[in-house]
Design a protein around this nucleic acid. Structure first.
Lengths: 112, 112
DNA sequence: CGCCATATACAGGTCATCGGTATATGCTTC
DNA sequence: GAAGCATATACCGATGACCTGTATATGGCG
């Protein structure tokens, strides 16, 4: 079991749903704000990810509302989904910490 | 310009080369240790990434040695490569911080 | 009246990664 | 002494997440 690494869009979708349920378009805007405008998810990416994550059991439909004749489907992060996200956070922190240390060694003039 | 997100294997290859030049197999072992054994790069992934990153100007061949009739090609992270890695670190830290905060909100019983 | 924001959905294409294989040497183990 | 493993680089076909673009529909703004 090498894998399990989440791609950035998937990671951000889970993050957007971590605090409270949101509908698709809300996730879209949330991801944009989390990333400071760096990441704007394509609609296709978002709904494909939502389907995939539902099949995985990491998110599920919270409720559906109809606002102005338009459907709003709210998604919720499940407990397994939260655990998965937490694991991915640890994994990424480990990697970014290693990268930082090595970049510092580099600017310090190489390895001892 | 939405993109620029590095995939995990690519990120780890750059990280492995950040402190000092290494040859392919050294990168392989280094990535494994950085990730605590979680990530073992496929040979195909590694050399494809090295080619791609060379074309991008983020890594370059440092030197070549022949040890026991076997070639050792050492790669080095370039300055643009180091800058790219540093940018990716900042990006990932922003995202992991957001994910952590939201997971805490969740365990605290939802958003205020 | 056209444009933008809101909102969901699908179809076609790309590309990084995976999985497997090939080649070659030297050390260890049985 | 041969079987297997670590070292070392390299290619090829398949997969799948993601991107681009498009379709559909409503309401507000200029």
């Amino acid at each position: 079991m090498n894998d399990g690494a989440l791609r950035e869009p998937t990671f951000l979708v889970l993050t957007a749903l971590a605090a409270q349920p949101q509908h698709g378009y809300g996730v879209l805007r949330d991801v944009e704000s989390i990333s400071g405008g760096q990441v704007t998810l394509r609609a296709g990416t978002l709904y494909a990810a939502l389907d995939r994550l539902s099949a995985e059991g990491w998110v599920e439909v919270d409720r559906e509302e109809v606002v102005d004749s338009r459907l709003r489907r709210y998604y919720r992060l499940t407990e397994p989904g939260a655990a998965r996200l937490a694991a991915e956070v640890r994994r990424r922190q480990r990697h970014t910490t290693a990268a930082e240390q090595r970049l510092q060694l580099r600017s310090a003039g190489g390895l001892a």
